[in-house]
Design a binder for these strands. Structure first.
Length: 205
DNA sequence: AGTGCGATTGACT
DNA sequence: GTCAATCGCACTA
């Protein structure tokens, strides 16, 4: 909680990020998402991620690059933020080499630091629900389109932080809330973690 | 210029 | 379990 505490979770180096989308999704489970706000730092452990792979009909890059989705075509480790249903912002990480459109969607965090700030950002919420869901976590961390295109591999308003602890066993399931490509097992989550979203039936081995 | 529709959430029966 | 809110974008014309 002291200033500088975020140095316990320095940014992941781009070189250590797997270049393949599915590998990156698995790699980011257990890593730390760090947000710097005027009031202080907010940190959470990534406990759930979905992969939107090359040529994926469910992915926003499927129909080619536009002004809206161009961040997906950056080399791995950049933020792609968009508004879903006119209500919730979704935070993705670009996941392939430059020019190839693919990404991973961060779907849930286990709050580690800055819980009071997160509660203020989300009108009334129990700890378990603060960042359990892709739209909830962006609200809790005050992430919106202004952060689109941000390099998440360096310190700044938002970055991916290192954590050397073993994350635990990773479960795999279908992705949530999509129609095309719905049968593919491209959702990854920490087994048994209470901060994972989705129905219980999806979260068992 | 108009239309349809989501990688969701929170409120409610 | 159901359902409305809300809006930027892709697509059609």
């Amino acid at each position: 909680m002291t200033p500088g505490h975020q140095d316990a979770h320095p940014p992941l180096g781009r070189a250590e990020l797997p270049i393949d989308t599915v590998s990156l999704a698995r790699y980011l489970i257990g890593k730390i998402l760090v947000r710097e706000l005027p009031e202080g730092f907010v940190r959470g452990r990534i406990v759930e991620i979905e992969a939107y792979v090359i040529g994926d009909a469910a992915g926003h890059a499927y129909r080619g690059m536009t002004r809206h989705n161009r961040s997906l075509f950056l080399e791995r480790g950049y933020a792609y933020v968009y508004l879903a249903y006119g209500i919730s912002y979704m935070l993705n990480v670009s996941s392939e080499t430059a020019g190839i459109g693919a990404g991973v969607l961060i779907r849930a965090l286990e709050p580690l630091e800055g819980v009071p700030i997160m509660k203020l950002n989300r009108a009334s919420a129990r700890l378990r629900d603060l960042a359990r869901g892709p739209g909830r976590l962006t609200a809790a961390l005050r992430v919106d389109r202004r952060l689109d295109g941000l390099d998440l591999c360096r310190e700044g308003p938002l970055w991916l932080g290192r954590d050397d602890d073993e994350p635990g066993e990773i479960g795999q399931s279908k992705r949530i809330g999509i129609v095309r490509g719905a049968d593919r097992l491209l959702r990854f989550y920490l087994l048994g973690n209470a901060f994972v979203s989705g129905p219980r039936s999806l979260n068992v081995r």
